[in-house]
Design a protein around this nucleic acid. Structure first.
Length: 292
DNA sequence: TGCCAGGGCTGGG
DNA sequence: CCCAGCCATGGC
């Protein structure tokens, strides 16, 4: 482990930002709460974030004079109200926003986001975190850390994953997802998929580019399009969102998958992805009813 | 213990 | 287009 010679702090000036909701809402998997702080890794920097009245206090393990890597990741320039007021005025969304106003979308690094969500299929969030911790420890670069007890590794590059064996990946508890992650890494290393060029494609073409990868269907593609590339219309539909749509918007009869797709594509407005994140977090965190 | 998890692929109606 | 079964693994 490398002890840092110098550390830096910075105040991200922002309001209407619920750090707890944002970092625990299943869009990024490398954040851990420590009391009032959140510790995690962005790129190759270990960082601790603390909510303050004037914004978010950041403590980086390495000396740092320029902080755009952090403000870009947090999307702190976004004026949340401009987004919330585009939502349709309905009860489910009103309740969701009231429950966790200040929930934001992050802007993550594409490869890490893609690999993470390939690992996510039929896994609970705690298990996804566990898998990602394992591959970072096994393949990632050790980082500068604030003290002897902290731990931190960079997310392994596509080249590092491409050079590993399926058995090594399976030993990180990936199961049947291991060959998918490896194939995605190899496609990137071989130049068959250029993630940075996907960023500038129209939404449907970008989605089509991602779903060429084995193990990447519409849901995972939409996660990458929303959480890494910032396509505002991307609307991942997982089991929680499916439950929300059926309970809250189609309580009478079960809509067909095709009808659901048409609904989400037309109903939620220009920031459908944000609406999706509010519904997701609301469904996952609201107190269970009728448990007697 | 059995059910379910931020799914996708394949093969059948 | 729709559906069932399968994939690997662990939390609850």
């Amino acid at each position: 482990m490398i002890a840092a010679a110098a550390a830096s702090t910075f105040l991200v000036s922002v309001h209407d930002y619920d750090l707890d909701a944002t970092l625990s809402s299943g869009q990024a998997f490398r954040w851990r709460r420590d009391g009032n702080n959140w510790e995690g890794v962005i790129g190759e920097r270990w960082v601790r974030l603390t909510p303050e009245p004037a914004g978010i206090r950041a403590f980086a393990a390495e000396s740092c004079t320029e902080w755009s890597w952090l403000t870009h990741y947090l999307q702190s320039e976004i004026v949340l109200d401009d987004i919330l007021k585009t939502f349709p005025k309905d009860l489910p969304l009103s309740e969701s926003v009231a429950a966790c106003r200040g929930l934001r979308l992050l802007r993550q690094e594409p490869w890490e986001c893609l690999a993470s969500f390939i690992c996510s299929s039929t896994k609970q969030i705690v298990q996804i975190q566990q898998i990602i911790d394992l591959i970072c420890q096994r393949f990632g670069k050790p980082l500068s850390l604030p003290n002897q007890t902290a731990r931190g590794f960079g997310f392994p590059s596509a080249a590092q994953i491409a050079g590993s064996s399926e058995a090594e990946l399976r030993s990180c508890k990936m199961g049947f997802r291991a060959p998918y992650v490896r194939a995605a890494a190899q496609a990137i290393v071989a130049g068959e998929l250029d993630l940075e060029s996907v960023r500038s494609l129209p939404y449907q073409e970008a989605r089509n580019a991602l779903t060429q990868l084995p193990g990447v269907g519409e849901k995972i593609a939409n996660c990458v399009l929303l959480f890494a590339f910032g396509f505002p219309e991307a609307f991942p539909v997982d089991v929680w969102i499916m439950k929300a749509l059926r309970q809250l918007y189609f309580p009478k009869r079960r809509p067909t998958p095709a009808r659901l797709r048409r609904f989400v594509a037309s109903y939620f407005g220009p920031h459908a992805g944000y609406a999706q994140q509010y519904l997701f977090h609301f469904m996952r965190t609201r107190r269970r009813v009728n448990v007697s």
